[in-house]
Design a protein around this nucleic acid. Sequence first.
DNA 1: AAGTCGGGGCA
DNA 2: TGCCCAGACTT
Length: 356
Amino acid sequence: MTAGSAPMSAPIPELRAALLAWFDAAGRDLPWRLGSEGRRDPYRVWVAEILLQQTQVARGLHYYDRFLEAFPTVEALADAPVEAVLKAWEGCGYYARARNLHRAAQLIAADGFPTDYGGWLALPGVGPYTAAAVASLAHGEARAVNDGNVRRVLSRLYGEARSTDAWVQARADALLSPDRPGAWNEAVMDLGATVCTPRAPRCPECPLAAHCAARASGTPTAFPAPKVRTAARAVQAVALLIGDDRQAVLERREGQLLGGLMGLPMQAVGPDGSVSEALKTVCERLGATPGELLGQVSHSMTHRQITLHVYAATSGLPRQAVATAALSKLDHKALGLLQARQQSLFAAPLTEGSSV
DNA sequence: AAGTCGGGGCA
DNA sequence: TGCCCAGACTT
């Protein structure tokens, strides 16, 4: 419980009224909020919720418009090749989201949209958060969402620094407005995204400030306590650029890391740290002849700090158009290396077809 | 319960 | 630089 000087939390109906009044006046206008409250378009809400997983709204907006233009309906999404879906997702990260979205679209095209929480939860890529969001926003179901915003807002409101997932869900369930569940969920997330922000919360603008334990403590940013994260490992790899930055030999990546995307042929550098050995391995695998070192690229991902040694190579393998393939940022950096190098080597305007 | 999966924004 | 973001899935 909170200390003696901290405010007792207000009765739940009072908290609901305060936040919903703020939301009605200051809630964000977002493209997936078309349609009436609690009756939003399921397809638009679902796509948005998948896109926004671990992705800030400001960033998701760009991809959302692009994605809906490419796939205006669930049927269009279901009928598209997965390569096209990944191309629309290119640069957005966590590509399993796009693969699952495509699989789920095919299930929906066959069976129709789910109509409740349990139905949504059964779809690939849909977990407790997304199922609660779509059920409340599109179907008016009384399901409380639990995301990073909710966790932060409720941890601060009740002064619980070490809030567990179950604790947050229980508080969210208790607070959820039974009359306006969709609006309530949107309101808590809007508050977390625009007022109760991680680094510099705008407490004077907060409709719950008078009831907030973290505000009373004087150090609202201490709630919740930071999550412990495993450190990124430093890894090295060799990539082959066979061709140029427009036409190159590309491979389809398998597995979890960047799975489904295309990319330059790569080979991880072994624990002995021998780059030349990795270069030899990948060249033998492709039947390619190694050329000169084009340079190094460094790229950080969630659990990896990658140093990529990019070599030119020659091979009879067919090249693909880079522009139409879905590539990771790492591969785009590697391709950019060639362009930067050409510009530095040739001060005069470059003539076409002079690469390799 | 802990690891893994991208990439960018921001203090 | 480190932490965070409208999380889900695997082990």
